[in-house]
Amino acid sequence: MAADFSTRLDELDATLRSIEAVLKLDDMRAEVADLELQAAAPDLWNDVEAAQSITSKLSYLQGDLRRVEEFRSRLDDVGLLHEMGAEEHDEATMAEAERELESLQKGIEELEVRTLLSGEYDQREALVTIRSEAGGVDAADFAEMLMRMYLRWAERHKYPTEVYDVSYAEEAGIKSATFAVKQPYAYGTLSVEQGTHRLVRISPFDNQGRRQTSFAGVEVLPVVEQTDHVDIPENEIRVDVFRSSGPGGQSVNTTDSAVRMTHIPTGIVVSCQNEKSQIQNRAAALRVLQARLLVVRQREQKAEMDALKGDGSSWGNQMRSYVLHPYQMVKDLRTELESGNPSSVLDGDIDGFIEAGIRWRRESENADSDA
């Protein structure tokens, strides 16, 4: 038993050392010090958006640093605690050390997932768009369920969100919605959620109570930053204004403040109706359009690289099934991870699926690079 504890302790120590090396703690401390100076500037809040970005990044880095340092301290302490219990043949102390080691293992494994987010845009905030697909009113209802799932997930983690646009369906649910998760690494974390989600249930909209399969699509984009240089000439954009609408199509304000923006060369259309003024909605719509165009550019570059490698494949589009009838199960089709509690998953308990997805993506990337 003591040997087993010692082996697991050594393995956790090695994992934590690897995490410390990847996170570059000295660089992280220097960045925290620099951000603290910026956050202390008297004119910080003259630019609200920049101020929120600085304080959000500072809070995230401080949290990461604190977690690593706390894990290191607890790992040192648990070894001493177990050693002391073994010397004194104190079963209670050894049991306490065992519980602490299990808690540390879970926490360090979660932190290890964070170190796998090393893509070009992984540390960005995220723009999430959900669209109803095949399945009629059930698909629109499912799209709204998914939107709630992600907003609840963000709420559980205390991540700020902002809904930019919701297009309500006629009978129930939504045609589409776009919202931002304003947290560093939100893009890298949520990007594994991209794809088609499938719901199987007895339709609440079917008078005969038949089983219905419906689909909704999730798109995740990195928020564009000033360094991205996504310049859009004004003559390539058409802007239409309209009144914001709520469920059932009723008007929710009396002015044409909502904005629909069309990028003429690509045909990409985005809209924003959440803000109070047309100017604010126009700025938010432009941010979403820039994010879409950034991804178009990424895909074009990836297609060129795939063509050079002679490999045009990408990972599958349908990624998760939510079955509510005839049995209860949520299953990820890539990682094979399952949950028998769909209500909990749809209430935002998706960390296990996200972590498994991030590990699966890294393994897939490593396999592709070895091929």
Score class of each variant (00 low, 15 high):
residue 187 Y to C: 06
residue 174 I to W: 01
residue 186 A to G: 05
residue 231 D to G: 04
residue 232 I to V: 13
residue 258 A to R: 11
residue 185 Y to W: 14
residue 239 V to D: 03
residue 207 N to Y: 14
residue 183 Q to H: 15
residue 253 N to P: 09
residue 251 S to G: 10
residue 248 G to T: 09
residue 221 L to I: 04
residue 274 N to E: 15
residue 207 N to M: 14
residue 267 G to S: 06
residue 209 G to V: 05
residue 192 V to Y: 03
residue 206 D to T: 10
residue 237 I to R: 11
residue 264 I to F: 13
residue 208 Q to A: 14
residue 227 T to W: 14
residue 223 V to D: 09
residue 197 H to I: 00
residue 247 P to K: 12
residue 242 F to K: 05
residue 244 S to K: 15
residue 179 F to T: 08
residue 262 T to F: 12
residue 219 E to H: 09
residue 203 S to A: 10
residue 183 Q to D: 04
residue 238 R to V: 12
residue 272 C to M: 07
residue 218 V to L: 07
residue 224 V to H: 02
residue 268 I to F: 00
residue 253 N to W: 08
residue 201 R to A: 09
residue 240 D to I: 03
residue 173 G to V: 11
residue 257 S to K: 14
residue 235 N to P: 08
residue 238 R to I: 04
residue 260 R to A: 06
residue 229 H to L: 12
residue 174 I to T: 07
residue 258 A to N: 06
residue 212 Q to M: 09
residue 198 R to W: 00
residue 202 I to M: 14
residue 242 F to M: 14
residue 198 R to Y: 02
residue 181 V to R: 03
residue 192 V to W: 08
residue 237 I to T: 12
residue 246 G to I: 03
residue 260 R to C: 06
residue 252 V to A: 07
residue 247 P to T: 10
residue 187 Y to M: 06
residue 214 S to P: 08
residue 214 S to K: 09
residue 187 Y to P: 00
residue 183 Q to R: 14
residue 270 V to H: 01
residue 270 V to E: 04
residue 212 Q to Y: 06
residue 177 A to P: 02
residue 180 A to S: 13
residue 179 F to N: 09
residue 259 V to N: 00
residue 247 P to M: 04
residue 213 T to M: 07
residue 239 V to S: 11
residue 192 V to D: 04
residue 196 T to M: 15
residue 268 I to R: 02
residue 252 V to T: 15
residue 269 V to S: 01
residue 255 T to F: 12
residue 236 E to R: 08
residue 254 T to C: 07
residue 261 M to E: 06
residue 274 N to F: 12
residue 272 C to D: 09
residue 211 R to C: 09
residue 242 F to I: 06
residue 229 H to Y: 12
residue 208 Q to F: 09
residue 268 I to V: 15
residue 197 H to F: 00
residue 236 E to V: 04
residue 223 V to L: 14
residue 200 V to A: 07
residue 246 G to K: 14
residue 180 A to C: 11
residue 263 H to R: 02
residue 248 G to W: 03
residue 221 L to Y: 12
residue 222 P to R: 13
residue 172 A to M: 01
residue 249 G to K: 05
residue 220 V to Y: 07
residue 191 S to N: 13
